Simulated scan of single mutants.
Amino acid sequence: MKKLIISVSAAGLILLFSASSGYAETITKPPTRLYEQNTMSILWFQNSGEAKALYFQGYNIGKMRLDEILRKKQYNRALKPAIVLDIDETILDNSPHQASYVVNGKGDPRDWSKWIKRADAKLLPGALDFLRYADSKGVEIFYISNRQEAAKESTIKNLQKVGVPQADANHVLLQQESENGKENRRQQVAKTHDILLLFGDNLGDFSGFDGLTDRGRLETVNKLKEEFGKKLIVFPNPMYGDWEGAIYDFNLKKPWQEIEKIRRDHLQTYEP
């Protein structure tokens, strides 16, 4: 039986996701203002120096940690050293796709396939320099994304176009129909490699976060606080992600009016 997860994209489009297949379909059309609620998130991501600084910071920390681990040989030398990275909003910038929902006030999540086929996403700051550095140190690089396997050719084409090293079928691991999350692919890599560092914009890019409530995610972050900046490197993405789905308890059968109310109810404010 396929598990169904309801989610609302940050752009406000209400979707129905099959966790096993990753397929999404529109189940209701939200008002234009729900799309527009993502305007500031996308503006910040695309235009703020702070967003770019955080990417540089994350990859700088990654380089320092990689140097330290390799220099001190702090890994299982019986295995090959490796790093694991997400792709979207970690290496490639898909914010133009998100912006299209805001500008046009409409859209279909299946348009992600059209965007991916363009293979035209640009690099995020610091990504290429870090990846080339890791490659020069003989570290294997695995790109683990929840893009569907059908998008593999276009994904590899995009990565190769921007000069990312080791962007081939053996290192680009996309989601299979039977999968829910990335843990299985991480475990497959770990059978033959010691994963030194993991990079992502979503807590689901790390072990232990799949399917957690918003409170559960915060609690798990607290438990793993020593690992952030040490083994786990997080990048900013206010545009979309499991952080939003968790607020709705991953229940997308809610009407858009309720979704909008939940958003407002989760804001922490004060009495003026």
Rank of each mutant, 00 (worst) to 15 (best):
W112F: 15
L79Y: 14
L128M: 11
I141S: 01
F56D: 03
V221W: 13
T32F: 14
L15F: 03
N38I: 08
D120W: 09
Q98K: 01
D135Y: 14
D205A: 05
L15W: 10
S41D: 11
K157L: 11
L174Y: 07
S41N: 15
S100I: 01
L123G: 03
N47V: 00
K254C: 04
S113P: 02
L4Q: 10
A190F: 04
S145H: 03
E179Q: 10
E244Q: 12
S178G: 06
Q74M: 10
E271Q: 07
N38V: 01
R263E: 14
R186T: 01
Q57V: 00
V102A: 01
L131A: 03
K230S: 09
D242L: 07
A24R: 10
Y248T: 02
E50Q: 08
Q160D: 03
A53W: 14
T32C: 08
E177I: 12
K29H: 12
L267A: 06
R185I: 12
M40F: 11
S20Q: 11
D249Q: 10
F250D: 04
Y248E: 13
E177M: 09
A78M: 08
N184I: 15
D194K: 00
S41H: 13
S48C: 06
L173Y: 02
K223L: 11
L124I: 05
K63M: 14
E258C: 01
V189T: 06
W243H: 15
S154F: 13
S95A: 10
L124P: 07
E271N: 02
L124T: 02
I14H: 12
I42W: 13
G204V: 02
I247D: 00
P236H: 03
A151H: 14
L128F: 13
Y35K: 00
E89V: 04
V234N: 08
R71I: 04
Q74E: 14
L224M: 15
Y248S: 01
I195P: 09
E260A: 07
Q188T: 04
E153S: 12
